[in-house]
Design a protein around this nucleic acid. Sequence first.
DNA 1: TTAGACTTTTATCAAACAGTCAAGATTTCG
DNA 2: CGAAATCTTGACTGTTTGATAAAAGTCTAA
Lengths: 227, 227
Amino acid sequence: MQQLKARATETQRKTRIQVENEEKILDAALEEFSVHGFRGATIDRIATHAGMSKPNLLYYFRRKQDIYEALIARLLDTWLEPLRELDAVGDPLPELRSYIRRKLEMARDFPRESRLFANEMLQGAPRIKRLLETELKPLVDEKAEVLKGWMKAGRINPVDPRHLIFSIWSTTQHYADFDVQVQVILGPDRGAEGRFEDAARYLETLFLDGLRPKAGSAADAPRIRTL
Amino acid sequence: MQQLKARATETQRKTRIQVENEEKILDAALEEFSVHGFRGATIDRIATHAGMSKPNLLYYFRRKQDIYEALIARLLDTWLEPLRELDAVGDPLPELRSYIRRKLEMARDFPRESRLFANEMLQGAPRIKRLLETELKPLVDEKAEVLKGWMKAGRINPVDPRHLIFSIWSTTQHYADFDVQVQVILGPDRGAEGRFEDAARYLETLFLDGLRPKAGSAADAPRIRTL
DNA sequence: TTAGACTTTTATCAAACAGTCAAGATTTCG
DNA sequence: CGAAATCTTGACTGTTTGATAAAAGTCTAA
């Protein structure tokens, strides 16, 4: 252990075993923390799931909190990548459409990461609040300006850009975080891939056109002055 | 304690003290479980927060799980009330508009309940999956039919009704479950009430009209064939 | 007012938990 | 190879946790 520390002050070249085991541990920890949160997770279970003894695990990460923090550190970057790609120069609607799709893909491909993030939020983000302020907020501010620009140019409807971002986050992450509920309600008929495509199609319609039928659509008669 | 059990088999008339203390306990437990989940919560903290000793608390609820279950039992009913009120006979858009508003009000007025529910979902709903199947699913099925009817009549745009419901749930509950994040991003300028009104206004626009600008709006020129 | 029902506390327990230590096993590399 | 570095383990520590038992205290209704 003292070697680990000594090396850390140098260039910290990692052993094969070190790389493998840290990966195993982080994977098992993600499984555990994403479901039970920080307090609900136990080192014992993480170690078992990672296929090693508890002291061995603690050789790589000295405290429970270190594992959690390692997990969180790599999370936020990945998590914000789709938003970073939102391009001010592109066409607004296709840009938004593909942002939504990228977020939905993340919910499909990294549900555990999504749940870990959700868990941290539910707890009031005690361990990443600062990161939210220094990394998340500036990015959102920047992209909110992009959206505002599009609105001023009349290229998308004028709405609060931050709330727009919230709604994209929440609708897409819902499929990871509330997966059980989604499955109960949709039934087992459609597989995961089918559900994904349905969700993508639905969200596209919602965000682009909303629910109000086009003026001049078929059965327009019965409505008086909707809303 | 044996008296408590004996009474339970009879008509279970509750003492004044019993009523008061159970209420105190459930309130403290909601606070604790909604943040830390089932495993992360401890009886000690719940007892302290309820202002009583741990054995005293356990006199009213014999096991940790009993408290959690009492909480969950009263939750789902309240939680589904807004959807129950969705009226097949009413006008579609105003009905949806007020459903969204009711859900948003619940997120504002019962954020702890929302987080408790979210926490249970994140864990895979081990304790209420059955309830979801017997209570939630039939209700959603019923309301999905209502929505389908409106779509067939051309009164709202045709979309997958279940995904529509998901998106209403996720966007509204987001304001309770991810409250920290929302506050970090929106800044402290607007108080809770202001944020609520902004969210309500935004969601109304989103769900009714989406982001695509009305045909014939001001700066239509630059777009080619959006999406 | 007092017996019996109800409530609270003190003391206690076994299991689970985060974390340590030193000794033994294995790998790496000159 | 063989020694140094790295890795793994078993045994252990102090604390927290969920839960119980019994006794002491309080309330309430006849």
